[in-house]
Each structure stands twice: as structure tokens, then as C-alpha cells.
């Protein structure tokens, strides 16, 4: 069922879809960043697609990513993960999970993002319910969703520096707002 979705996407958008994969019944399409809004609008509005339910947005940090070694395979033959054909593993993958309640199929859109350029188009104008989750992804990974109406931190406080779910954020680094004055030693 959903393989049809991928095929239709590839037929319609050609090389705007840089890669596709299917795993355990989940279909994933890697979309070029500048084509994302166009692809998503079509997915929402086309009668045969009708993705009417936004499920989640999140981000994957691929810092130091290494493919899992298949049994019996020497590690040197492992390919670089390169869904966009850019020649290197991207630092981040932002993904939007969509579902069609009408047709009962699902699709995940992914956009590869480099650390030096964290901008991606926001899909909140298309599906309102992505609003808070895009804010969360911004909060935790620092992805800038362009076109989001209210891109602020949602869980953390404004004083927080950095983005804690990035793999290079020190695991135990706290950024306290208050401490007892006698602990700070200014008593």
C-alpha cells in the first residue's frame, strides 16, 4: 500500500526525492530541503494521498554515526550514510511522520540538515498540530523552522544555552537558575 505512495512521490517529483527506504512497514522519503513545502502540500491535498494527520516531528543527530556492522561483513566495507547524495553523512535528519486516516497509510518525510545551516521549512502552516513539536525540536536540537509562527523554546527556559539533545551537549551539564545563597558561598 505505502510503497505506492513512495512510487507516486518519485514519479511526480523525480529528483526532489533523493532516497527512499522501507523498513518494518514504515516508508521513508528523503526530500530535498527546497522542495519540502511543495511535496508536503501535494501529500496533504492530493485525493489519493490525503495525509490528513500529523503524527510527530523530531530530529536525529548523526554525529559520529556509524552503520551497524552486518554479521560476517568486514567493517571496512560499510558504506557512508548518504541519503542526499552530498557525499557525506549529514549532521541532522529532521523527520515528519504523516498518516492518512482516510487511506490508512503512513509516510515519513526526512530532510538532511548540515550543522552549518540549520534552516528547514516549517510544516506548521500545512498541519497546525506540528506547531509545538517543531518548537520542541528547535528547543532540543536548534533546528530553525522557517515559516513557523512562534518559534520559541517550549520546555527549557530562555536562559538555557545550547541544545541538550545534541550528541555534543555534555551529558551532565546543568544550567541552574537558582541556588541557595549559602551554597554559592556569598553569605
Amino acid at each position: 500500500m505505502s510503497q505506492k505512495t513512495l512510487d507516486a512521490l518519485k514519479a511526480k517529483f523525480g529528483d526532489a526525492i533523493t532516497a527512499t527506504e522501507s523498513q518494518h512497514g514504515d516508508e521513508v522519503a528523503y526530500v530535498r530541503r527546497d522542495k519540502l513545502t511543495e511535496v508536503a502540500t501535494w501529500l496533504r491535498d492530493d485525493r489519493a494521498m490525503a495525509f490528513d494527520m500529523p503524527v510527530f516531528v523530531t530530529c536525529i543527530d548523526l554525529l559520529d554515526w556509524r552503520p551497524i556492522k552486518a554479521p560476517g561483513q568486514p567493517s571496512s566495507t560499510r558504506p557512508e550514510w548518504d541519503p542526499t547524495g552530498a557525499g557525506a553523512t549529514p549532521r541532522f535528519e529532521v523527520c515528519w511522520q504523516l498518516r492518512s486516516l482516510a487511506h490508512r497509510h503512513r509516510l515519513r518525510l526526512k530532510v538532511a540538515v548540515a550543522e552549518s545551516d540549520l534552516k528547514v521549512p516549517s510544516l506548521t502552516p500545512l498541519w497546525q498540530a506540528f506547531g509545538w513539536q517543531e518548537r520542541e525540536t528547535f528547543d532540543m536540537y536548534g533546528i530553525e523552522f522557517q515559516g513557523h509562527h512562534d518559534l520559541r523554546r517550549i520546555y527549557l527556559y530562555d536562559e538555557f544555552i545550547g541544545h541538550p539533545l545534541r550528541k555534543d551537549y555534555p551529558k551532565e551539564k546543568r544550567q541552574p537558575l537558582v541556588r541557595r545563597s549559602d551554597l554559592l558561598g556569598d553569605h
Partner: peptide
């Protein structure tokens, strides 16, 4: 919890 968000004990702030 030993991470960015959890305070290591409420006594960090009040006795």
C-alpha cells in the same frame, strides 16, 4: 536523573 534538566536535590535551592 543525571542530566541537563533535573536538579540534584531540592536542597540546592531551599534547606
Amino acid at each position: 536523573y543525571q542530566n541537563y534538566h533535573a536538579m540534584p536535590g531540592a536542597d540546592q535551592v531551599i534547606p
